[in-house]
Amino acid sequence: MWRLSKCTYSCSWCLYLAAVSCAERGLRSHLLLRGEQPEVLTGYNLVSTMYGNVQYVPRSRYANREEMLRTYADLVAGDDGSVLWVKDIVEGLEATDVAKMDDLSSSKTSRRKVLIVNEGAGDALALLGMFRLVQYLSQDHLLGKTKPVRFVVDAGTGTTTVGLGVAAMCLGLPWEINAVMLADTLENYKRHEDRLIAEFTRQFPASVFCSSLDMNHMIKWVDRQHPRKFGKVLEGEVEMCQKIAQETGVLVDPMYTLAAWEIAAELVQDEKSSIVVMLHTGGTLGMFGLAQRYKSCFTNLKD
């Protein structure tokens, strides 16, 4: 096993967690954020800067994510370095890559190795983390393995959704995953789902988990109650987040988790036989950035 000296990540509200993990293991992280640097760093922008080397990438260049990541990683690696994607480790290196890595390991001057983690950890390897979560939640003293459960999750890249579905199906759980589409079309989410499942079955023997993966009845992609271009906050949504926090103690944000909350509340009204569970994916530190972009929404909040 070869030890990484650097990791490169693309924009995600959870990337600071990866930066923390890298710092704990002595790895240097490069965090690529879409858009312009805020005048005052707060929230994820501030925390990410404390842990990693943050670079703001113009939106036009960020649009082609893989090319942007690879270009930056090549720059970090330099002429004598090597660049890999996370999925390369799982799927196995080509013979030429193995030889190259061996040469690097034996060299005293050429030891820079760069690993790219895609946006939203959007590779099949990320699905393994959802297996842990589903195994935990399906314990008898929590949700159990026999009761029907309707999950609701906000879908950015959609990787969390697919991970929940794959894990629930492989463990034979009577669960349904309702994914609220935030950033793309149904066609593209389905395409992402198919790609992840194809990668997963190729990287991990089917016999280890389950014999077949048919997500048609497990995952339901649904529109958010108030569709809009990703990143836009509608009038009254910040006040709704405040109301939910004050009445329930649950802090949701208007960009991600409010959408899941709204659908979950809708399902609860009609549900009699199943448990409805909203998976809170985080995103609350993003409120700091939203407060800078939508100042009037926050300054008008009532006590």
Rank of each mutant, 00 (worst) to 15 (best):
F131Y: 14
L143C: 09
M130T: 10
F209A: 10
M255I: 09
L15D: 06
E39K: 03
K302S: 05
L258M: 09
T146E: 03
L69P: 01
V47Y: 09
A18P: 09
V149C: 03
P254K: 00
Q55M: 15
F209V: 06
Q135M: 02
S107F: 01
A126I: 03
V180L: 00
G35W: 11
T281Q: 06
V20P: 06
E36G: 07
V57F: 01
R34D: 10
I275H: 00
H226E: 15
L125N: 07
D140R: 04
A99S: 08
P148I: 05
A73N: 10
H217R: 03
G144W: 10
Y44P: 11
K190D: 00
L173P: 01
Q246Y: 12
T71V: 01
L41K: 03
F131D: 10
R25Q: 07
L27W: 08
R202G: 13
V98W: 05
L4K: 10
W2R: 14
M215W: 13
W175E: 08
T96S: 15
V149W: 02
V250P: 02
R202K: 07
Q292K: 13
A73M: 05
R65E: 14
Y256P: 05
G78D: 09
R111E: 14
A95L: 13
Q269I: 02
A168G: 11
L279C: 03
V54Q: 13
V86P: 00
S29I: 06
F200L: 09
D80V: 03
I177T: 08
G172C: 04
I89P: 11
L93E: 11
T284S: 13
T8L: 14
N64R: 07
D74F: 00
A126H: 09
Q269H: 09
L15C: 02
L258R: 12
Q246M: 11
L4H: 11
F288W: 13
P38C: 15
P254M: 00
V40Q: 12
L301K: 04
N45Q: 04
T161F: 07
E239V: 13
P227V: 08
M278Y: 05
Y9C: 05
M181P: 05
E239Q: 07
R3T: 15
R224I: 00
C14M: 07
D184E: 12
E187D: 11
S110I: 03
W85M: 04
P58I: 06
V134E: 04
C22D: 11
R59N: 05
V208T: 15
A265V: 04
V134D: 07
P58W: 06
H141T: 13
N188V: 04
L301M: 05
E262Y: 00
F298D: 06
V114W: 05
E67L: 14
V268R: 08
S29C: 11
C22T: 04
V40F: 04
A168P: 10
P174N: 04
M50K: 00
M215I: 10
Q242V: 12
T257N: 00
E199W: 09
Y136K: 03
T299F: 02
G283W: 02
L32D: 12
R34L: 00
L27R: 13
K232I: 08
D123T: 14
A206P: 04
L115Y: 11
L69E: 07
I116L: 12
L69C: 10
A183S: 12
T284G: 01
G165I: 14
L128F: 13
R293V: 10
